[in-house]
Amino acid sequence: MESNQVMKQIKEKYQQVEILDNHLLVPETDIKAVMKELRDAYGYNVLSNETAVDYQEYFEVIYNICRVPEGDMINIKVKIDREKAEIPSVVDIWPSAGWQEREIFDLLGIRFTDHPDMRRILLEDDFEGHPLRRDFKWVGGRD
């Protein structure tokens, strides 16, 4: 099935999901159900990439999942509250999220609930702040 059709079917099943140009915008409460559905019913078996962006008013977590070995891909986004900065982890659905979520936690300070090992991964444990947040103050460099 084409990824456009899959997106439409997901939208039919989960009313709050929105289809925006090339991705699905999923509410935080539905993310795990949608992910499970995509993996088990549609065969999207690999979480290729997971990352997050700081848009100052909110955070956006981005998931790029694909079918291996066919190769088609779906992009999923979740908007989360910047103050709370928390989202359910998808490690139990895709183990490959393990390190990527740790990286997001390290650099953007988004906490993944139910993640088995929520520690920093690249920076040292006593590092203060999360550098990829837009309000991170740093010495040196440009601007």
């Binding site: 650099l107 991964i121 690249l122 920076l123 040292e124 550098p131 990829l132 991170f136 740093w138 460099g141 440009r142 601007d143």
Partner: peptide
């Protein structure tokens, strides 16, 4: 790991 972390993603923003 992290011994070679240079923050390339952050540097790219400026």
């Amino acid at each position: 790991m992290g011994y070679l972390h240079r923050g390339i993603e952050k540097l790219a923003e400026s």
